[in-house]
């Protein structure tokens, strides 16, 4: 069974002490665990339950409610593409299609080499600069197909893009 590093445990402890009930620290502690494990699967839930001294059922009730916890492995670069109204008006669908074509995967999937994964997310609070997406913790706004290609190239310089025709590029 995996276990959390001492420093993460200490951070979790500090978080729990900030609130009148330790359950209140569940969301940030889950984020800490996700950072360390890369995802929140069954085992991670049980580790968090053990660290927090609460039932794994309670941890699962929380972790499965929120979309920002991954229950399956994501890529080294996790693209979270906003699908809410402002971004959609600004062309989020085209952006998503372009990404899918470039990477050869569907939304909520991961490339075979484990480098990239794509997820559709709700508003990430950059509605004035849509279409927007997060790559891991980094924000990208005013997305165009070219910008997407740039981001992919920057993350994985070896990746070949030209063999795939993107409809977005034809315009």
């Amino acid at each position: 069974m995996r276990t959390l590093s001492d420093s993460t445990r200490q951070q979790a402890q500090a978080l729990m002490e900030m609130y009148p009930t330790k359950e209140a620290a569940m969301l940030p502690v889950l984020h800490l665990a996700q950072k360390e494990f890369g995802l929140i699967d069954d085992e991670a839930e049980q580790v968090v339950a053990e660290v927090m001294g609460i039932s794994p059922v309670s941890v699962r009730e929380t972790s499965r409610f929120y979309f920002m916890y991954h229950h399956h492995p994501v890529g080294k670069y996790h693209l979270q593409v906003c699908q809410n109204i402002s971004c959609t008006i600004m062309g989020a669908e085209t952006i998503l299609d372009h990404i899918k074509r470039r990477l050869g995967i569907e939304a909520e999937e991961r490339t075979e080499d484990g480098l990239f994964s794509v997820e559709r997310v709700e508003c990430i609070a950059c509605c004035d600069r849509g279409p927007a997406m997060l790559v891991n913790d980094k924000l990208h706004t005013g997305l165009t197909p070219d910008k997407i290609d740039g981001i992919i190239k920057e993350s994985d310089p070896e990746r070949k893009l030209d063999h795939m025709q993107s409809e977005g590029n034809k315009e």
Partner: peptide, 20 residues
Amino acid sequence: EKQLGIFGHGSDEVLMNYPG
């Protein structure tokens, strides 16, 4: 002891025991 929980979100929500 919590042996059952409601997991998931929206229409996906499901009442279950903890896996295993």
